[in-house]
Design a protein around this nucleic acid. Structure first.
Lengths: 345, 345
DNA sequence: CTGAAAGCGCTTACAG
DNA sequence: CTGAAAGCGCTTACAG
């Protein structure tokens, strides 16, 4: 359709006003005579005029675009987060551009350059595996930024996380109360703060109860590693009677090994608790007791924090922790005296 | 922080050249004296100059941004598609902005307006549930567009799909060859062409074999509906000995009903074939025979088609169908004489 | 309330 | 190869 796009100038001519007046009508930046404004709008509608945001960006200094940096979307959690975050930001007039971070430092540098070149007004760093180099380069750029679900002890950057320490503690206490003594933890990744915090919560709960962890092994948040470690644990003399697994994705693999390979009954022979409350956790096939990540609240906090920093550049960085919630299902023994909640979906 | 961004003009002054020369160095649009170019680059690096893409967009007419419209990302397939597509387009110098389509026609209109306002150079419509109104509004805008994995008989718009008819036929023939007679199809959604095509492939294979479908019910691509329909099928007098399910997500639920609720063995009592080859299909828990969507090839075709339309606006719309592949696992009986392939992951 | 003017940071003919 | 000039489509003081 080679037809050139309609500009504010075209509308102005057709409506018998000046181009800045058209601009004022659409940017609601100043008052315009109501009748005239209505005429402008009518003409614009008829001509199919839509303000060019690129031009607006250039002189207003705001692009109304947010960059969100991710590592992968195969994990449904981040996909859902992206979707919700995007909707929340759209509602405030921002569009969301995605950037996928690789691992090499060249790629990381390239991403920061892209972010700067694209003139994004704000950045969300949403991947566990983002390097510190990226975070500090972004910080130096001066563009408002918040870390989403990513532990990173950069005091200058805002971040929103679930309270992983509390969640790990809660899950472990539940197992202890149910009478388990030989509890093992299949941990996340020692370089990812959320995994570390869950593990520390586990260790703290064990210590408070005067129990020694049967094991506590790093599984890199990877399903296959968790499955292999499970096999090893059950090849020992003293086998676990409960497993706390650092995320649901690994827990699904662990359940598979326990039931299909080792022929164990869950929770009669061994209790399993996961972390995240991924959609699949509620499937009968898994029926996984797990700590729910309060995604909605985390998204809202992320959007609000970022928008606040954009609006008010001098505000101090915020560290927001959203508490999780233990979702009790069938994969872990239920402490006596604890009312089994009605079906939680 | 507040320090104003370095512009081409700043670099020019520091390097002792004119601003357009700096522009030429970074846009490689014209030849520049090599020594001078090197000096400019050095100064730029030192000052931390990064060209402002917004300014470039405004007069070049290209934003180097692609809009991708999605309905949801909870389904891992689209998340992965988004990631791969984004990487492919990034490689060609485009950034990708995401737009989530709701259902109401107001929302659809708003998305088209956003796409236009943002001056995207191209659009990918990637959701089954996008209304025809959206497609035709996008088409009228004249912005290059390709439909990804979405049946939609708009002759004027390019589209890339898997060959769903062939896939449905292939899966059904596999069941027939294994000796099944009472085959039922749990279909996708009659308003989504990919579901319809899979169903038609099923019907065609049945007809060729002189078999009557035991059932063929619309499940809207929804897990819960598929589960409910499975219960109904097995409450009849004549129960199926094989099920072809229109996607893996539903098939996982179907397997759950068969095994956990009905106590049936798969594939001894009933064979199940899914569609998509979602990552979970290879898990031992499911071990699902399924038709693999050739995602990589579909992504490549989508990116290439779109870039081609952008570069060459007068080219005719393309309809590309990528053949699928039956991945044989343990959930369906294997026809005698068919070599069971080595473990497919 | 509203028009004429300048300018956002680039690219692109146009001369030289 | 390279500088001076115009312009992309808006917004924003500045007068009135």
């Amino acid at each position: 359709m080679g037809s050139a796009r309609i500009t504010a100038y075209d509308v102005a001519k057709a409506a018998g006003v000046s181009q800045p007046t058209v601009s004022r009508v659409f940017s609601r930046s100043a008052s315009v005579d109501p009748a005239k404004a209505e005429r402008v709008r009518a003409v614009a509608r008829e001509l199919g005029y839509i303000p060019n945001l690129v031009a607006r960006s250039l002189n207003s200094g705001n692009s109304f675009r947010i960059g969100i940096v991710l590592a992968y979307l195969k994990n449904g959690f981040f996909g859902e987060a992206l979707q919700d975050l995007s909707k929340a930001l759209n509602k405030q007039g921002y569009s969301v551009t995605v950037y996928f971070a690789g691992n090499s430092s060249d790629e990381v540098d390239a991403i920061v350059d892209d972010l700067l070149a694209d003139q994004v007004d704000g950045i969300v760093l949403a991947s566990i595996s983002l390097s510190n180099a990226l975070v500090s380069r972004v910080r130096k750029s001066g563009i408002p930024c918040v870390l989403f679900n990513r532990g990173q002890s950069d005091p200058g950057t805002s971040m929103v996380t679930a309270s992983n320490f509390e969640g790990g503690k809660q899950a472990t206490e539940f197992l202890i109360k149910a009478g388990h003594k030989r509890i093992a933890h299949l941990a996340g990744w020692r370089k990812a703060l959320n995994g570390v915090d869950r593990r520390d919560g586990f260790l703290a709960a064990m210590e408070s109860a005067g129990l020694n962890p049967l094991a506590c092994v790093d599984c890199h948040f990877r399903r296959n590693v968790a499955m292999e470690e499970t096999r090893k644990l059950f090849a020992q003399n003293e086998v676990p009677d409960a497993l706390f697994v650092a995320n649901d994705h690994m827990a699904f693999g662990v359940l598979e090994v326990l039931r299909e390979e080792l022929g164990l009954r869950v929770p009669e022979d061994v209790s399993v608790i996961g972390y995240d409350d991924a959609p699949m956790a509620s499937w009968k096939t898994f029926d996984l007791t797990t700590v729910r990540q309060p995604l909605r609240q985390m998204i809202d906090a992320t959007a609000n924090t970022l928008l606040n920093e954009i609006t008010n550049p001098s505000c101090a960085p915020e560290k927001i922790e959203i508490p999780g919630e233990l979702i009790v299902r069938g994969s872990a023994r239920i402490p006596t005296g604890t009312a089994r909640p009605k079906a939680q979906t």
